[in-house]
Design a protein around this nucleic acid. Structure first.
Lengths: 205, 205
DNA sequence: TCAAACTTCAACCCATGGGTCAAATTTTAG
DNA sequence: CTAAAATTTGACCCATGGGTTGAAGTTTGA
């Protein structure tokens, strides 16, 4: 990638960032391309030099958001922690990413169904990948006897729902810090999964 | 209300129902008034004889949805059940209403921020009323010593997030029935609130 | 220095869709 | 039966906003 291409890529990144903010503030439809351009001191015409369509911008938001979440979860997956710690870290990380990348992730939650078929397929695949990793960890915990038996998919939906919702109400002015919230959530949501009386490790006969 | 007014009201109800379906399927923006009319064998022009604007339709959806949820929760509040049972019933009722009135409630979740200020105020007030009732029950449980001490508002958000999210993935074709899901959710979400070793009721001295 | 490549711009195009309205049609009540 | 009220219609209006384009301005590298 030469100098010019790099600069163009940088500018596109910037455009996506601004788009994310406006999409998350007003929704995909109510944020206009002209507005996004205006914020960056561009005109609508020149912004199309960097992007191919408004949908493209929306897709970039979704894609970046998913990539961040995936980066985070893969690190945890490879951490070697015990399952219950892993699951807690995932929930914490999810919420912390959600808050620190608020605009980006809010877009994905609020303008979910606005993504056109072709783009959506790519994102859904990444989301499935994310959820599969969680499923693997929970199943592992069940096999190891630290988690009780549960309907894994449903539980993942329960956890994801609770965590994603944070984006709807969180405010930095609230009485709890983001870390406190993330800890409360991860404790609260993992606790009922634990086997109360941890099975003594299977001994022979 | 005379005969004609009654019929007009009935028709409006019908229009709202159809609007809810289309709003929940395609989102507020992508469902057009013309489409809503067409579904009901009206023309766009004549539908405006019954409604004042598209926003009005969206508001009716929100309002009906909230009224159903409020009806449900008020019954539970007055049931005289112990707090942990009440909370479980609320979660179950919330999810069951969500599913049985899928379109109506999905609209409120997916086209939340589309409601204009004036309309939104009314809905937010009802939502606050709903959450206040839950807060009351949780606080009551804490006082009675059956619930541990928790940040009440945050917990309500956690629970509502999990429950509302059901609307994003539930399908009647799934492997669990709606009742099973509702029970799993209510057990899972209330359990970590319970004081493990229930305090023996305070005795004198 | 200068031509080629890159970037910006403003005017324009046009499909979409919410909302209006006057006239036509249907219903109702006396 | 008839006039007034209620209902329906479809043509129309028009603001909005995504996207295009060709020309003008700017940067780059030889």
């Amino acid at each position: 990638m030469n100098f010019r291409e790099q600069r163009a890529a940088e500018r596109k990144l910037n455009i996506v960032k601004t788009a994310a903010r406006l999409f998350s503030e007003k929704g995909y439809h109510d944020a206009t391309v002209e507005e996004i351009a205006r914020e960056l001191k561009y005109t609508k015409g020149s912004i199309y030099y960097y992007i191919s369509s408004k949908q493209d911008l929306l897709f970039q938001c979704h894609d970046q958001a998913m990539n961040m979440l995936l980066d985070n979860i893969k690190k945890i997956k490879d951490s070697g922690l015990p399952p219950e710690q892993m699951l807690k870290e995932i929930i914490k990380g999810h919420i912390e990413t959600l808050v620190s990348e608020f605009n980006l992730i809010t877009v994905t939650l609020v303008s979910d169904y606005e993504l056109e078929e072709n783009y959506a397929r790519i994102i859904i695949e990444k989301r499935d990948q994310y959820e599969d990793i969680i499923a693997g960890i929970i199943k592992d915990g069940i096999e190891k006897g630290v988690f009780r038996k549960v309907p894994v998919k449903v539980l993942i939906n329960l956890i994801m729902g609770a965590a994603n919702w944070v984006g709807r109400w969180y405010s930095p002015e609230g009485p709890m810090t983001m870390e406190e919230i993330a800890c409360f959530y991860s404790d609260y949501l993992v606790q009922p999964l634990l086997v109360k009386d941890p099975q003594p490790k299977k001994k022979l006969s």
